[in-house]
């Protein structure tokens, strides 16, 4: 196929080259970097790009998974298989542990989510392993506050982001200099869009978790969003369980992952579905709906 040829000036190849460049800068500039792996498509693509960047050597950094304890079992299977295949080192930070040790208090009620609690577990994991740089799969097209994020994002000793005082980032010169106790978040996929991610997965033939393809599932509807009918989300009496063919458009913690009614059974189907979609992928994310600047507030606290 012609589009598989590296000599074409495909936008995907340009994005790939840029991301590989960023991943190598991280390995060169930091002493203890790590790649934040959520099991979602973005972190899967980021891991794929990292494998390409350092081949035939193994990844020069571990994968870090912040486990809310409310993950789809498919996510955990995929993660473990990936670690097995690539020989990557895996660090798991557990939100349940943070709760048990009294570092955080579990939210109560129908909208309870461990999404906010993840921030504490993440910062604890960073401190415990002395990580000086965490790479995330966030993209600038996801959300308004993300659009202002640098590739190399400096965090103070409290892990906080100060959007008014970001370092200017010019050409492809990334400044990872920092003081003791500070760290960086780096986003190699900054310039990718949701469509680019799926097109690249197709182009490269990357195997994806089954959750992204259509499957039958017990679901219920809350505020116009379909959620999985699993014990970690308490339901109101009025919220009845139905069975539908659904797929995940993003994969996060079960409590905040909206499911899309879909018949998409292949990567080509997914790409066509996204091309026709009229709602953003974060439209299904309960965590963004809390207020108009929900993401900005979480990021300032040290969220992903």
């Amino acid at each position: 196929m012609e589009y598989m040829n590296h000599s074409t000036r495909s936008h995907l190849r340009e994005l790939e080259a840029e991301s590989i460049f960023v991943l190598r800068e991280v390995a060169a500039q930091f002493e203890r970097p790590a790649l934040l792996f959520s099991g979602g498509k973005d972190s899967i693509v980021m891991t794929w790009l990292a494998l390409k960047a350092f081949y035939p050597a193994r990844l020069p950094f571990p994968l870090v998974h912040i486990d809310t304890g409310h993950n789809f079992p498919e996510t955990i299977h995929y993660r473990d298989a990936l670690v097995e295949q690539t020989g990557a080192r895996l660090i798991v930070g557990s939100v349940q542990d943070s709760i048990d040790r009294g570092r955080v208090v579990e939210e109560k009620g129908f909208h309870a989510s461990r999404n906010m609690l993840q921030t504490v577990t993440l910062l604890d994991t960073i401190a415990q392993h002395g990580l000086d740089c965490c790479m995330g799969g966030a993209r600038r097209d996801e959300e308004k506050a993300r659009a202002k994020e640098r590739f190399f994002s400096h965090r103070d000793e409290f892990g906080q982001w100060d959007p008014r005082n970001q370092r200017p980032e010019l050409w492809n010169l990334f400044n990872g200099r920092k003081h003791m106790g500070e760290h960086f978040r780096v986003f190699p996929l900054s310039n990718w869009t949701e469509m680019d991610i799926w097109q690249y997965i197709l182009l490269e033939g990357i195997e994806m978790p089954s959750l992204y393809f259509t499957h039958e599932r017990e679901v219920f509807c809350r505020d116009g969003v379909w959620l999985a009918a699993l014990p970690c989300i308490p339901r109101r009496d009025s919220e009845s369980v139905e069975v539908h063919r659904v797929r995940c458009r993003t994969i996060g913690d079960i409590t905040c992952t909206g499911l899309t009614l879909s018949e998409a059974n292949s990567l080509e189907d997914i790409i066509c579905e996204i091309a026709a979609t009229r709602v953003t992928e974060r439209g299904g994310r309960a965590d963004d709906k809390r207020s108009e600047s929900a993401m900005e507030d979480r990021k300032k606290e040290g969220y992903f």
Binding site: Y3, L203, I271
Partner: peptide
Amino acid sequence: MELASNGYLDMELL
């Protein structure tokens, strides 16, 4: 699937 033939996977980036 026409994804390849219509150039969808091979656009220029400005």
